[in-house]
């Protein structure tokens, strides 16, 4: 018990006095995850919208696939990205393994299906509402998709925040492809795993508290966004 209390106060000290090692890890975590969320949104949001607006032959299959991909075990994604990027793999030539780029790739693969799936549901509902009007106004496919994405931007922001929440707390995939290298690929989750193993509880708890605060902030944002979403129909 004593050890936990001590660790707690030491953790606060590390946070409040801007411990450089701690903040390096925080910033790398944010950099990797924010980049991954941006890329995954650029891919996932339009895919979701296309699935909602377009009728094509294997549409139901693609939607089922998307839902299945949401449940991919991150460790398996890590293994897959590792094999792709390892020297003998098809993308080995780029030398990306054990770099932040490798971690970004893994996170993008993990959260794109999530973002695309939420985007699909959101846009599908709005499309049902807008359908006749947008057809009557002779919109092109691109105009439809952009109107639908723009008008459901709050719900879509919620989707990207959900993606952020999932990515920032992920450890299985990025420890495999990043390698948890000090000053290079060490992020919040992988550092917690390592420091806990070393018995370095204060540092591990400092990291854990930051992670929890980030998670709370994101959840509050999601809560607020969905609340205003319901309050008024837009």
């Amino acid at each position: 018990m004593n050890e936990i209390t001590q660790g707690f106060w030491d953790a606060w000290a590390l946070i409040l006095f801007f411990d450089p090692d701690l903040y390096e890890i925080i910033f790398l975590s944010l950099r990797v995850t924010v980049t991954a969320v941006v890329i995954a949104s650029l891919i996932g949001l339009p895919i979701g919208a296309l699935l909602a607006v377009n009728r094509f032959r294997h549409r139901r299959f693609v939607i089922a696939l998307l839902n299945a991909l949401m449940g991919l075990p991150p460790v398996v994604v890590g293994l897959f990205v590792y094999m792709l990027l390892s020297r003998a793999g098809p993308l080995g030539g780029f030398g990306l393994l054990f770099s932040p780029s490798a971690m970004i790739i893994a996170q993008v693969i993990i959260i794109t299906p999530l973002i695309a799936s939420i985007s699909h549901q959101t846009v599908r509902d709005l499309w049902a509402n807008y359908h006749d009007l947008l057809i009557s106004l002779n919109t092109t496919r691109a105009q439809r998709i952009s109107a639908l994405l723009w008008d459901s931007r709050r719900a879509l922001l919620t989707a990207t925040l959900a993606g952020f929440g999932r990515a920032i707390g992920e450890v299985g995939a990025i420890i495999i492809v990043g390698g948890n290298i000090d000053h290079a690929t060490r992020v919040l989750t992988t550092a917690i795993a390592l420091e806990t193993g070393k018995g370095n509880f204060a540092f591990a708890m400092g990291l854990g508290m930051v992670l929890i605060m980030l998670a709370i902030i994101v959840n509050l944002l999601i809560h607020n966004l969905t609340k205003t979403e319901q309050a008024s129909t837009w």
């Binding site: 807008y130 006749d132 009007l133 106004l137 008008d151 459901s152 837009w234």
Partner: peptide, 21 residues
């Protein structure tokens, strides 16, 4: 339409929308 279709936008932007298209 018999039941009005309202985009989630401000009134002025809804009316302007066909021109933007």
């Amino acid at each position: 339409f018999q039941s009005p279709i309202m985009m989630r936008r401000r009134v002025v932007d809804c009316i302007a929308y066909p021109l933007l298209l």
